[in-house]
């Protein structure tokens, strides 16, 4: 088994637009929970991970300049991550297809965790 990180990426606009009415939100929420539960039941979740704040700081250059995060223009933002266990990258990518973020114009970035000692 290898480990992979799912990075959930979307824009603020896309996620708001995709949310729809309260009743549609209810359905999205149910879909997220069902998907997470399915992955957990199948033993694919190493660490459920965390949601991330949409704002932050950027520390840059030899001057250590601190600026507000790159998110003011609400470009593609990482909203959270999950640590996944899967046979290989192909399986990890396949498993991510059920992620509800895809319904709302978001993206799942699937990245293999570099194994130590390699």
């Amino acid at each position: 088994m290898s480990q992979f990180v799912y990075l959930y990426r979307s824009t603020n606009e896309a996620s708001r637009a995709a949310m729809g009415s309260p009743e549609q939100l209810q359905k999205s929420m149910q879909a997220w929970m069902a998907w997470m539960k399915r992955l957990a039941d199948q033993g694919h979740i190493k660490d459920q991970g965390h949601p991330l704040e949409r704002t932050g700081k950027l520390v840059k250059g030899t001057q250590r300049t601190i600026t507000d995060g790159p998110y003011a223009e609400s470009k593609d933002v990482i909203g959270g991550y999950t640590l996944i266990e899967a046979k290989d990258l192909a399986e990890a990518a396949e498993l991510s297809k059920g992620c509800p973020i895809l319904e709302g114009g978001g993206v799942v970035e699937v990245r293999p965790v570099l194994q130590t000692g390699m």
Binding site: M29, M33, P51, G80
Partner: peptide
């Protein structure tokens, strides 16, 4: 309200209801 709902959708899948 829309903002608060967005927030819930970002957080609850990870932390549970």
């Amino acid at each position: 309200v829309q903002d608060a709902f967005c927030r819930a959708l970002e957080v609850w899948p990870f932390r549970g209801v």
